[in-house]
């Protein structure tokens, strides 16, 4: 837009954009407000309180902790599996590896429900495993691993790892030393971006988890759905508030990492 002559088209567009934003943001704001309202049906006039938040924390702390636990276990698994996988994919460019890269998109394309059902059909018979949180973890790892691999692979393909490694090898460094001293540090932006993505996705994952969970092992989003379905709306809203407090920093960090990665190019 050059200069001050802004036509009606500009203002129309601006108004429309703001309206859409308002439509997207207001339910979230209202929901968050409901979480700190004494009585939702009376409205915010009834007073502001942390009562509901406390109640959620008291009754659902196990669920919240389990979510965080699964997210970090999931992160550990995707790091251990995903970083070496990305390394192999980037160092051995061929028809086979390109096929694998294509396949990496599959779990994202398949609905979570289908993946969950497949898991239950395959492993449902192993009772102890079926009942433990590890069952949910497997689902989450399946779901998030491709994101980790692709984030790391993108960085690996952009830094000419092959030549860096050859340089290190010419100086006498064996494989292990090269991998930890040269490969990993130079892929950090990708690993960081992948990690935040995995944690965020795992904490927020609902589709898969809904089918995989047992009454004793609920994660945060599943508990949230229960709360809305069966308890006071204020409790559900307070729950949402807590969910936001956990997830928003992850999202903000993710943006920051992505920006820094783009800036250093």
């Amino acid at each position: 837009m050059a200069g001050g002559s802004r036509g009606p088209a500009f203002w129309g567009q601006l108004a429309f954009t703001l309206l859409v934003c308002l439509m997207l943001v207001s339910p979230i704001v209202l929901s968050l407000l409901a979480g700190v309202t004494q009585n939702y049906f009376v409205g915010i006039r009834s007073g502001v309180t942390l009562r509901w938040v406390e109640e959620v924390l008291r009754t659902y702390s196990g669920t919240i902790l389990l979510s965080v636990q699964i997210a970090f276990a999931c992160l550990a698994c995707t790091l251990l599996l995903g970083v070496p996988a990305a390394y192999v994919l980037s160092r051995h460019q061929g028809r086979a590896t390109r096929l694998v890269e294509e396949l990496l998109v599959m779990p994202v394309a398949i609905p979570g429900l289908a993946t969950a059902l497949a898991l239950i059909i395959t492993y449902g018979g192993f009772g102890d495993f079926r009942r433990s949180w590890l069952f949910i973890l497997v689902g989450h790892v399946l779901f998030t691993l491709p994101f980790m691999v692709r984030a790391v692979l993108a960085v690996m393909n952009s830094v000419d790892l092959a030549t860096l490694e050859e340089g290190a090898a010419s100086l006498g460094a064996g494989f292990v030393r090269r991998f930890f001293g040269v490969v990993l540090p130079n892929c950090m932006p990708g690993i960081l971006a992948g990690s935040l993505m995995v944690v965020t996705l795992s904490i927020g994952e609902f589709n898969l988890t809904w089918l995989l969970h047992t009454p004793l092992g609920k994660t945060l989003p599943v508990g949230l759905a229960d709360a809305y379905a069966s308890l006071r709306i204020e409790i559900g809203s307070a729950y949402t508030l807590i969910f936001f407090v956990i997830i928003i920093p992850c999202l903000v960090l993710m943006q920051a990492v992505a920006r820094r990665g783009a800036g250093s190019k």
Binding site: V159, G167, G172, A173, G174, G181, V182
Partner: peptide, 29 residues
């Protein structure tokens, strides 16, 4: 393998380690 031949290599694309500064690069070997 190359790591046991004790050769020095200089590449067209430099192949310096971006995660280390100048002195650390030189000290690597």
């Amino acid at each position: 393998p190359i790591e046991r031949r004790n050769v020095g290599m200089v590449f067209q694309s430099y192949a310096l380690f971006p995660n280390m500064n100048v002195a650390q690069n030189v000290a690597y070997g």
